[in-house]
Structure formats: structure tokens, C-alpha cells
Nucleic acid binder design. Structure first.
Lengths: 345, 345
DNA sequence: GGGGTAAATGAAACCGATATCACTTAAAGA
DNA sequence: TCTTTAAGTGATATCGGTTTCATTTACCCC
């Protein structure tokens, strides 16, 4: 019960494989009579071309590779859907992979994908992956980075405007009267994370508040959750006058909320909270956790369009291939104007 | 800068393509000298075989197709990871796809995957897909269903024990003293959903409580969220004496919580809540939403192992290929023993 | 009618691997 | 010494398409 091949269609119709191929691809000039006969035979026999054979011969697979840090994560869900929708319009399929922010794993994935003859890549940067990316570029394999980029490399990328989003959020806290603002982030060499921290310091400077390193907590990447919760609790413990806290990722936000719950603190009375990257839970959790919502759909769509343009499938309407997209600041109950004595400006 | 081919390795070493192939696959008997020379050339030139060519020739791709309802959903995240881990041990790659519980889409996906020469399938059943599944079976393509199955078909499947899990949860509510228990579910022709509803009625029968259809709400599949929230609010409105509610999916649980929040009801004082399928949010949301946690990892691992066994890659230690796995009942603050007068048994 | 041209089609090479089968040695057995 | 036999290797077909190039046919024009 093997599927029928093009050659068999040729035999059935009395045409040559060449002719059948030409008809199927709408190329060449084939008489209407022959065309119809072939098309009919194709239909009657439920013939569909073998993609593998096509890939082997043509050297391209109509498959895009997408490498994200965590295929189970909340960022990925929305992303996958929009990438798929955009790519499908041009007949592209997607292979998704998780790098888990692990360099070795990411390397293997790229190697694996390239031997599957993947036509293009959407990659979430992993520290140290620069050489592999350059290698892809050298081999004329189009790559678009999302969610981050390598400052030293000239590779197209699409990501949220981390710096300004954080500054917006910080403004909001400061204008609500908060002065002792903590910042919890993760210690990983990713530009997007560094930019968020920079946004924190820039905001303090902008409002003439002095930075205090004791208010900044950098947790090791992939730290055990229990330990992370404890570390955040310690941050609160050693900074009793801290009146607001900024979490630089949604994962950290969850950890932070657990810490706050365990300490029995009340949001926003004891502490105001804002978190980078929204989650459904932030909306549902009383009093609502304010957040900076990433425009995931737009990032995904833009990245895919960019990639398709590089593949020559689509015209590129954008002037640049290094794109930052503004985020949405979502203010919920976790930030409330506090009583600020008038003399404190 | 095309990647180097096996033939070129043959030229470099002066061996024939056959010999190189045999060495690479550890087949045949090749003298150690030749073997080493070939291996060295492979290493020096960074040769890696072209998977596409291998697939074409051998007829299998070492790729598994996984079709779930929603690739962005919470069930999928954990599932994907474990499937990947298990499959990788045997050199299999995965292609993930979303059916969105849409029959037409699911059909296309199967067609697409089969033309990519996918070796085996893990599929979350979609109503009406029976013929396509049977067709795969007829073509000797192994299929394992997860999270549900088709009662009329003899196809291997792995899923949680829906009936008994619900009955456990119900027992817990009833033993806590609840008598007027609502059940919110979705109107879709999936065995797992029907079994949950059956579990509800069976429990009532078991405890000699009379069933009341007014306490059961079946929402249309993929109903607009706002409307769904309203429908649940209406359920509460027209059943003032309802003292507990069971949500048959985590998605419905979220909707239910929003309804309860909007109505200003207090959990568990006004209403006890339990939900099928755990979410992180249920743990964090005060007072903690009780839930029935699916053993996702075990389902994923079992399904993959079953599939690999069918592919002859692994011995099957299980006696059957129709497997149900017990769930974990997680009791949180959303259920509390209420004051039951002694004379009510 | 011969020559030129374009339309319509086919033969065969090719993509990069594997599989079959044949061939060459060298060692073992008669 | 002459087979036998097995080890070691290579030539070639093959998977299912696409692509290049050649060929046939029909038509047109001088």
C-alpha cells in the first residue's frame, strides 16, 4: 500500500515523468488535453508528491526552523501560532525546538536542522551561539533573531523595546510616589535582560534618585525555585523600607509573588509590584499584578515576514532588519499612588 | 560552500561510497585500517550525512509527528518536553502541530506529515478523525492516541483515568459536606470530556444524591470568553443554593474563577471549587484552587515508549496498549469541611 | 518543397544516501 | 595443488522527484 509515485502517474497517462512534473508545477507549455488527462489521473489516484524527494532534488525543504529557549513556556505559545499562520501562507512548515538556553543543545539543534535542509531560521539567542549564526549566514541560510540579538553581529532581529518599556514602568512606579524600588533579575548574558537592568538605572538617574546596589538582586539562571523564593524573601528582609519591586521576567514575577505571599505582605499596601512580560495569572491574581506586556504576536509576525522576505517569498516593506517594537504597559491594582508628603517632590 | 557529501569522502579516502556508508553505519566487515582512514576524513571535513537523502532511500525519516489540540496550551508544554527526551534517546526528532480540534486541519496535518515520511504518530483525538487514523494503521504507520481515544477503534492510547479522578474529586467535595454541586463542562464529542461528566453523575448516584440538570452547564466549544464568564455567572445566579462547583477543564476553571471574582463570591466560604487539570495559577491564587492534576509526564513518556515499541525500537514491557493512568488529587484551600449538622449524614 | 521556428514532449542525468550483488583476495580445507 | 569459503570492497541500481537538453511534430514562409 505504498503511495503512488509520479512515475506511475506517467505510466497511467502514457506521458513521461517530465511532462507530469511540468504539469504539476505549472511550468512549461503542455497541451490542454495532456494536462487534463494528467490532472485527472492525479486526482483519481490521490497522488501527492513525495516532499522528501523534492527536497533532495531541489535542495530546499519549505521548512523553517524555530529555536526558542523553552517550548513549554508562555512566550512560545502565542509565538508558535502566529509564526505558523504567517509561514503557512507561503507553504512553509515549521520545526520547533527548545534550546533551554543551553549552548551545546543549541549547537546540536542547528546542526540537526541544517542537515534536514531547513530553509531558514528564527532563533532566540543563546549566549555564545554567535559563531554558528555567522556560519549559517555564510552559507546563505537566512536567520532572524527574536527576543534578543548579538550587539556585535549584523544579523536581522525583532524584539520588544526593553529599555524604554522598563523606563515606562519605572516612571509609573516613581510617579505613584515610590522611591525605594527593588529590581529582581537573572544573571544571564542576554542583551534583553541587560537592557532591562539598564532601564532601571536610567530611570533612577532620570528622576534623580540614587541607585542602591542592595536593592538589585541578580539570581543565577535556572536557580532552584525554592532557593529563588528564599533569595527574594531575603531581599525584602534586608530592605525593610523597599516600597516597590520590579521583576524583570514573568518567571521571576511568579517567584516574587510566592515570596510576598509567604512573607504575608500585602500588595500594593506594603509593596507595589510590576513585572516584565505579562501572564494570565497576573490579571487574575488579586489585586492584579501590573506588567509590561510583550507584543508577542507582532514580534512573531514581523520576524516571520522578515525571514520570508529574505527567502525571496515576500516583499519587505520595512526599511531596516533590526526592529524593536514598543510594549504595552498594563497597570493593575499592584500599583497605587501612595501618600506622599507634599514636601517630598 | 555546500556541505560535503559521502561521495566526496569516498574520493578523498580512495574508498567506494559503499564502504564509507558501511563504516558510518557500523555494518559489514571493513578492515580497521580503512575504517580509521574514513573516520578520520569524516572528522576532518566535518561530514554529516544528508538526512533527506537517507529518508528517501530508506523510506523512513526518524521523525515522529505529534498532533495536539493546542500547541500553545499548558498541557502541551510539559508533554512536548518529555516526548522529545524519550524520542531523542532513540534518535528520533519530533514535528509538533496544532489541530485546534478542527477536523479539516487535523486531516491536512496527517496528510502533510505522511508526505514528509513521518515514521509514527502521537495524536490527540479530534472528533471525526477515525477514518484517517484507520488509514494510517492500514499503511502500517504506528499511531498512539493521547488524552483520549475512539471507543469504537482498536488503537493504542494513553490517558488519565478521567472517570475515577472525577469521582475522587467529587467524593472529596461530598465528604466535606457539599450537597449542591455544580458541574461546568464543554460540549464537545470527546471521550475524555464525556467520562468526566459521567464521573460526576456516578458520584452523585454513589452517594445517593439526586442529580439536577440545572446544576450542569455545558458550554459550546471555543465559546467567546466573555460570554462563557456570563454563562457561568448565570449558573450561579439561578442556583443560589449551589455550594460547590466542579470545572471539567483548566480553561473552564479560569473562566469560573473570573465569574466568581466578578460576582464577589468568596472561595471557599460561599462556594467550594475544584478543577480538572492543574495549573500553576491554581496554586498561587488564594486560597488555592483544588485540582485534579494530570500525570502529563507519565502520559507523554508512556505514549512515546509505546510508539517506539511499535516501531521496533524498544521492547514493550506493558501487557496492553490501552492505558489509563491515575491522576493526583490536589486539595487546596478552595475546599473546606463545612458545618454539617450531625443529623445530616 | 526545403528550411526555420516554436510548441510539445521525452530521455537521461542528478540530488545523496543505501542495498544488492558481484568481484577480488587470502586463508582454510581436501 | 585445487577448491571452498569468507572477508573486504566496489559497481551499480534505486528511492521519487526536477532539470537539462534533445527530439519530434506542426506550422509558417519564401
Amino acid at each position: 500500500m505504498k503511495p503512488i509515485s509520479l512515475k506511475e502517474i506517467a505510466n497511467i497517462t502514457g506521458a513521461s515523468p517530465t511532462t507530469v512534473s511540468l504539469v504539476l508545477n505549472g511550468k512549461g507549455r503542455i497541451s490542454e488535453a495532456v494536462r487534463q488527462k494528467i490532472l485527472q489521473a492525479v486526482k483519481d489516484n490521490g497522488y501527492e508528491p513525495n516532499r522528501i524527494a523534492i527536497s533532495l532534488r531541489t535542495g530546499h525543504s519549505n521548512v523553517l526552523g524555530v529555536i526558542v529557549d523553552d517550548i513549554g513556556g508562555p512566550f512560545f505559545g502565542a509565538l508558535a501560532k502566529i509564526i505558523e499562520v504567517e509561514a503557512e501562507k507561503f507553504g512553509f512548515r515549521i520545526i520547533y525546538c527548545s534550546s533551554e538556553n543551553n549552548l551545546e543543545k543549541a549547537r546540536e539543534l542547528i546542526s540537526m536542522l541544517s542537515h534536514q535542509l531547513v530553509d531558514g531560521y528564527i532563533i532566540m539567542p543563546v549566549p555564545g551561539l554567535q559563531d554558528e549564526i555567522l556560519n549559517l549566514k555564510a552559507n546563505h541560510k537566512p536567520v532572524v533573531l527574536i527576543d534578543g540579538y548579538y550587539p556585535e553581529l549584523d544579523i536581522p532581529h525583532v524584539l520588544v523595546d526593553n529599555l524604554n518599556s522598563v523606563m515606562q514602568g519605572m516612571s509609573c512606579l516613581i510617579e505613584a510616589g515610590h522611591r525605594k524600588i527593588g529590581f529582581v533579575t537573572v544573571d544571564i548574558d542576554l542583551i534583553q535582560i541587560k537592557e532591562r537592568l539598564r532601564g532601571y538605572f536610567e530611570s533612577l538617574k532620570k528622576f534623580n534618585l540614587k541607585a542602591d546596589d542592595k536593592l538589585v538582586l541578580k539570581l543565577p539562571y535556572q536557580m532552584d525555585k525554592g532557593k529563588a523564593v528564599q533569595a527574594v524573601k531575603d531581599l525584602f528582609g534586608s530592605n525593610r523600607d523597599m516600597d516597590a519591586v520590579f521583576f524583570s521576567t514573568n518567571y521571576l514575577g511568579i517567584i516574587g509573588i510566592e515570596s510576598i505571599q509567604e512573607l504575608g505582605l500585602s500588595i500594593p499596601k506594603d509593596i507595589a509590584v510590576i513585572c516584565f512580560d505579562d501572564l494570565e495569572i497576573f490579571r487574575l491574581l488579586p489585586p492584579g499584578i501590573s506588567s509590561i506586556q510583550q507584543p508577542v504576536l507582532e514580534i512573531g509576525r514581523t520576524a516571520t515576514d522578515l525571514l520570508l522576505a529574505m527567502l525571496g517569498k515576500k516583499k519587505n516593506h520595512l526599511q531596516t532588519d533590526k526592529i524593536t517594537i514598543p510594549a504595552n504597559l498594563i497597570i493593575r491594582g499592584s500599583i497605587k499612588a501612595i501618600n506622599v508628603p507634599k514636601f517630598v517632590e
